[in-house]
Amino acid sequence: MEVRTIKVFTTVDNINLHTQVVDMSMTYGQQFGPTYLDGADVTKIKPHNSHEGKTFYVLPNDDTLRVEAFEYYHTTDPSFLGRYMSALNHTKKWKYPQVNGLTSIKWADNNCYLATALLTLQQIELKFNPPALQDAYYRARAGEAANFCALILAYCNKTVGELGDVRETMSYLFQHANLDSCKRVLNVVCKTCGQQQTTLKGVEAVMYMGTLSYEQFKKGVQIPCTCGKQATKYLVQQESPFVMMSAPPAQYELKHGTFTCASEYTGNYQCGHYKHITSKETLYCIDGALLTKSSEYKGPITDVFYKENSYTTTIK
């Protein structure tokens, strides 16, 4: 009895394709271990004539594949690729409408935090270190965002349907971005203890939790000093293409032309909904596939993004 075979390709990165001759009487799992086709788990399936010449994702289970996976995804987590594939199996079914010149995501599976993050990423200057993220990001900007969303979920250790947080998501993504040249110098002034300067680099240099107003941050924000008295913390120097200011959701007025974009969060910790506000020729609110415009805006804002380049204080 002759062994019926077909020729397929296996890959971990969709760049390096490895030619395989597979036995049609055995499952993919018996031949390769966990195997995925377009995100779908085909591990328990036997090869079919229609699979001839198709590319299958496999887990990096030998040295060659491990090197290829690390170079593309910059992670050695053995569960990463499987999590990416199972997320992709959902995100490829989502709709990605162009809204006001940006790629958004039609609401499904509690994905409003991903839509808000995706919209924000198209408006701030950011370059990702893992080629996987950078490639998928370019495709997302062009309207094909399924891979990018699935990668975000995998890097953030999230599953489809789980509630997510924009600030946490951005923080994970910033860790995989090139923020080497970003720098922030802060000064804390206390009447009792004097003053202390701190220099922050990388992710810490672009994120701040405690106030939404970048102007206020430049002037000074009140913080408790270690001595128990009130101290003032203010920005001395900022070198970065953008800054992200966050605070627990509270009524906040966004003035046209003073910011790049913002995240609105309605609801409580267990259950809520994100919308995205962007400042173009007027203010726009993007909620999944829905767009509304207004000249002014007041609502429960939790993150505001500002364009920056270089700032030095005039406070002496």
Rank of each mutant, 00 (worst) to 15 (best):
R4V: 14
R4A: 12
T5Y: 01
T5W: 15
V8L: 00
F9Y: 14
T11I: 08
L17H: 11
H18W: 01
H18M: 10
Q20W: 04
Q20H: 11
V21I: 13
V22S: 06
M26N: 00
M26F: 14
G29I: 02
G29T: 00
Q31R: 12
Y36A: 02
Y36K: 03
Y36W: 11
D38T: 08
G39I: 04
G39Q: 02
I45L: 09
K46L: 01
P47G: 03
P47S: 02
N49W: 15
H51P: 00
G53V: 01
K54H: 15
K54W: 11
T55I: 15
F56I: 02
Y57S: 03
P60S: 08
P60L: 03
N61W: 10
D63W: 06
L65N: 08
L65Y: 01
R66C: 12
V67E: 12
V67Y: 13
A69Q: 10
E71M: 10
Y72L: 12
Y72V: 04
D77G: 01
P78C: 14
F80N: 03
R83A: 08
S86G: 13
L88D: 00
H90P: 01
H90F: 04
T91G: 00
W94M: 01
Y96N: 01
Y96L: 03
V99N: 02
G101V: 00
N110R: 09
N111W: 01
Y113W: 15
Y113R: 05
Y113T: 05
A115H: 01
A117S: 10
L118F: 14
L121M: 07
I124P: 02
E125Y: 00
L126F: 11
K127G: 03
F128L: 04
P130C: 13
P130V: 11
P130G: 01
A132F: 00
L133I: 01
L133M: 11
Q134D: 06
D135G: 03
A136H: 11
A136T: 05
Y137P: 00
Y137R: 02
Y137V: 04
Y138R: 10
R139Y: 08
R139E: 10
A140K: 02
R141Y: 06
R141W: 00
G143A: 01
E144P: 01
E144H: 15
A145Y: 00
A146Y: 02
C149F: 04
C149W: 06
L151F: 01
L151K: 01
L153K: 15
L153I: 10
A154I: 02
C156L: 12
T159S: 13
V160K: 00
G161Q: 01
E162R: 03
D165N: 03
V166G: 00
V166N: 05
S171R: 14
Y172E: 13
L173C: 04
L173R: 04
F174V: 04
Q175T: 11
Q175G: 13
A177R: 06
N178I: 07
R184I: 14
R184P: 04
R184Q: 07
N187D: 13
V189P: 03
K191Y: 09
Q196S: 09
Q197F: 07
Q197G: 09
V203Q: 13
V203L: 09
E204K: 08
A205Y: 02
Y208K: 02
G210W: 05
T211G: 07
L212V: 12
L212S: 04
Y214L: 09
Y214S: 07
E215A: 03
E215I: 07
Q216M: 12
Q216I: 06
K219A: 14
G220R: 03
I223C: 08
P224T: 15
C227V: 04
K229L: 10
Q230F: 09
Q230G: 08
K233F: 05
L235T: 03
V236A: 15
E239K: 10
S240C: 03
S240F: 01
P241R: 05
F242L: 05
V243F: 05
V243A: 03
M245I: 01
M245W: 03
M245D: 06
P249S: 09
Y252C: 11
Y252I: 14
E253S: 15
L254D: 01
L254Y: 03
K255R: 10
H256L: 15
T258Y: 07
F259G: 06
C261M: 06
C261D: 03
A262N: 06
S263G: 05
S263W: 00
E264P: 04
T266I: 14
N268T: 15
N268D: 07
G272R: 14
H273E: 08
Y274S: 03
K275G: 06
K275Y: 00
K275T: 04
H276R: 06
H276T: 04
I277H: 06
T278F: 07
S279D: 12
S279W: 02
T282K: 10
L283H: 12
L283G: 05
Y284W: 13
A289H: 14
T292P: 04
S295F: 11
E296H: 13
Y297V: 07
K298T: 13
G299W: 03
P300A: 14
D303C: 13
D303G: 03
F305A: 07
E308F: 12
E308A: 09
N309L: 13
S310A: 13
S310N: 14
Y311G: 08
Y311K: 12
T312D: 14
T312N: 14
T313W: 10
I315V: 15
